[in-house]
C-alpha cells in the first residue's frame, strides 16, 4: 500500500540531497573550462605548409575561405631551369560564416590547417570576425600536440604494412636457416611485434 505523502517527502529529499552535493556550476571567466581533446575552437594556419592548392577554399561548404596568390619565378640554378612557385598573398577565414565542420582541415594535403581549442575571439563588429593569415598564424601557438594513439584502436595502415614486410623478411630468413620448424617460429614471433 502506498502511504499518502510519500511523493511529497521524496520531493523534499531530492532537493535536500542536491543541496548537500557540489554544484555543477563552472566559474567560467575566472576558471577556464577543461576542454576535451580535439575541441573545435578556431582554425589555425601554418603558412609555410600552404601551397595555395585551393582545396580548402573549394571544399568549404559555405565558402568562407578567401585565398589570393601569385606565381613567383625562382631563378634557375646553375645547370637547371627556372621554376615557378605559388606565393600566398591573402588567406582569410570568415568566422561569421564558418560552421566549424572542419572539412578544410581534413582536406588539406600538406597539413597547413589545424584545430585550436581557443574560442574567445568574439568581436563587436562582424567584419572583425574575418581573420587574416597573420591572425590565423598566431593561433598556431595554441594548437595542442596531437593526442596519443589509442592502444586499442585500429593501427595506422603504414605500421601494419611495415610489420607485414618485416614478418615476411623474418620468415624468409628463418626458412633459409632451418626448413623444418620455420612455420612454428613464425607463428610464435608474430604476436610479439604489435607496436613499434
Amino acid at each position: 500500500m502506498k502511504v499518502p505523502g510519500t511523493g511529497l517527502a521524496k520531493g523534499l529529499a531530492v532537493t535536500l540531497n542536491t543541496m548537500g552535493r557540489r554544484a555543477v556550476t563552472q566559474q567560467y571567466p575566472d576558471v577556464k573550462p577543461e576542454l576535451p581533446p580535439r575541441s573545435r575552437g578556431v582554425i589555425a594556419l601554418l603558412e609555410e605548409n600552404c601551397t595555395v592548392c585551393m582545396l580548402c577554399a573549394r571544399e568549404c561548404p559555405d565558402w568562407c575561405i578567401y585565398i589570393d596568390s601569385h606565381k613567383e619565378t625562382i631563378p634557375a640554378p646553375p645547370g637547371g631551369r627556372e621554376r615557378q612557385r605559388n606565393v600566398l598573398e591573402r588567406f582569410d577565414i570568415d568566422f561569421s560564416l564558418c560552421m566549424y565542420c572542419g572539412i578544410c582541415i581534413e582536406v588539406c594535403p600538406f597539413d597547413a590547417l589545424f584545430w585550436s581549442p581557443e574560442f574567445e575571439y568574439s568581436e563587436l563588429d562582424i567584419r572583425d570576425l574575418t581573420h587574416g593569415k597573420d591572425r590565423l598564424g598566431q593561433w598556431m601557438a595554441t594548437v595542442p600536440p596531437p593526442p596519443a594513439h589509442d592502444e586499442h584502436g585500429v593501427r595506422p595502415k603504414e605500421i601494419d604494412a611495415a610489420h607485414k614486410a618485416a614478418d615476411k623478411a623474418a620468415e624468409a630468413a628463418d626458412k633459409a636457416a632451418s626448413p623444418g620448424p620455420a612455420l612454428d617460429n613464425a607463428a610464435e614471433a608474430a604476436p610479439e611485434v604489435v607496436e613499434p
Partner: peptide, 13 residues
Amino acid sequence: KVMGHMQSRVGPM
C-alpha cells in the same frame, strides 16, 4: 543561496 544549491547551482557570487 539555498535555492541555488538545491538546484545544483551556486547562486549569486
